[in-house]
Design a protein around this nucleic acid. Structure first.
Lengths: 194, 194, 194, 194
DNA sequence: AATGAATGAGCTTTCATTCAT
DNA sequence: AATGAATGAAAGCTCATTCAT
């Protein structure tokens, strides 16, 4: 949904991400955002209807980045397991890079109970993985008595949670590679068609 | 941590849960809480240092309830898989009952980056499940080449996420039982020692 | 420092002086000031960073008035003693007119131990009198074995205290003229070069 | 007025002086005072009718100390000029020791416009100096065409202000002795019967 | 489209004081 | 006399939003 053509829209969005990452959502004022963006107070409202409208926009931006990164990386990968590895790698990478923004998204999530908006943002990501899974089933790479929709969502959640526990909750008893391996195997054992 | 002996502490806590569940954290004022609790504005601050201090207390309360419910239900269950079923059942039950509070906890999570507090609240739950897993490994019920700590956390996250997607995100394409089954099997396939 | 061009700044300052004079600093709320000034609550904070920031501004305003009044009146006066008389006259006049504000300044003085600010406000007044004294020494009107800086400060304090005792502490056993005379002579006896 | 027999009264008074000296009047709460005094919140009100009632009590305490110190030191001094020297010495000494309390008294001065109370506290000090001056006139040490009451007040104010400028406003261009000398001579030149 | 001064509702928090024990 | 939990009024300040320019 990003109006990438519009200079100011993105300037504001980036300024918002920067300031909120640093200060947290609550302590971030519009005035701090516009100051960083180098625009006037009132101009903000020409591009966003309210402060709350920032959050879905930020989340949307984040998911676009994630999905694009994943799609980029899977070029040439053939098996489902290669794709899974890429998804894990990229999710960890992006979680590390955007941890503050992710936390913000969680807090934004609670505002207005805007779950629907949330779901619609995730939608393309879910659907993309559903396709991948269906292909894998078709190719006899993975078992077929699963609910594809539910499994796509579960896998994404699983990986996201693991990476958040690693980078945000600092649950770092194990090295990055150990954790990535653990999650890869956890999923593989569950889905692999032996 | 629950000072169940302290009348007023719990009165405030319950009022806070009620009001926040209804209105959301942002739109909940202390004055609404104290009004519901039937105490004076200042009295709130004798029991909680600030509005933010409510959130860990509420979360703590929620986890105490969950863990107690689980422990209650597993009386007499023998196998790991029975226990897993109970954990799934209870998690879904409590997610349903406390969905508003759970959302609030997520948003609270972002305030002050208080991840440490968060972790310490989950800790007993994690440790309890680690014990269960270790026993299951010992009994040859599940495979043994897993990282127990990481797996305990992952299972809990997995189940919580599934139930939240079901009750909070209203991802209800499938019936409750189908979903519960799906998650049970997802985990079982991954851990079962055939 | 008076931004006489700025309409609102002065409107607030005047309203603050009025309200504080009437009610005292402690019992004066910002809301009373803005009400009197005919502006919104938030507007106050566009011009003053806090309630406390009013006090130096008020004091500054008061001193500017005093010094200007004195300078106005000494036009054409030739001797040091004529000038001293004017200083006494004007100090008493202004003390009478602004007694409430002066009391407020004393109390404000204690807030934040902001003595430095205080000193910098007095500075131009002190320096002006130092010049007068130096000229008087040069003209052989007064003795020359004094510390000019210290003496300037002392004379101003002496006169201010006398007028405050008269108008604020109501130490009015003697008529205004008697008191003025007493102080004039006290100083003259001390400094006159016979 | 000091109920020196009453243990708790003085314990509170001393705690108040300590806390207020450190934090300033505004930021000092009764709760901090009672905590320091080691008594209960309510007990404060058995000895002082309100927070404001503290200030005259503190001031009274300060003046009692000052006057006693002066009286102590003038034992055996014969001339008015010896006494004047003692008054200067002791005033500077006490100003240095109690600067924070003095500042507090200034700010308290503005509360309630309680000038009358103020005057009554100073009264014994003023009267004591009037007696000294009358004796000096009688002994032909100083000139006789002065208003004794006014002069007593003026001398005390003069010395107090000089010492406050020195210790509180840090007007320390000159050494302590230079300043003391300056003030002694300023007064002597004004009053000496040559 | 862009500005930024002005708005004013509404919040959290403090704290002097009370009173039942 | 002493306590200290409870009170609740009161106030400073913030900040999302508006609107005249």
């Amino acid at each position: 949904m990003a109006r990438s053509s519009d200079d100011k829209y993105n300037k504001i969005l980036q300024a918002a991400i920067d300031v909120i990452s640093e200060k947290g959502l609550d302590k971030t004022s519009i005035s701090a955002i516009v100051k960083k963006a180098g625009i006037a107070q009132g101009t903000f409202y020409l591009y966003f209807s309210s402060k709350k409208a920032l959050i879905p926009a930020i989340a949307d931006n984040l998911f676009t980045i994630t999905l694009e990164a994943v799609k980029d990386e899977i070029q040439g990968k053939e098996t489902f397991w290669d794709v899974l590895e890429v998804v894990i790698d990229e999710t960890f990478k992006i979680t590390d890079a955007y941890k503050d923004v992710i936390v913000l998204c969680y807090s934004g999530l609670a505002i207005d109970y805007s779950m629907e908006k949330w779901e619609s943002i995730y939608q393309p990501y879910y659907e993309w993985l559903e396709d991948i899974i269906n292909t894998a089933i078709h190719n006899n790479e993975i078992i077929n008595d699963i609910n594809v929709k539910w499994t796509a969502r579960t896998i994404i959640n699983l990986i996201e949670n693991a990476s958040e526990r690693f980078y945000i909750s600092h649950e770092q008893d194990n090295s990055l590679n150990v954790v990535k391996n653990e999650i890869f195997n956890f999923i593989k054992r569950s889905l692999f068609r032996g």
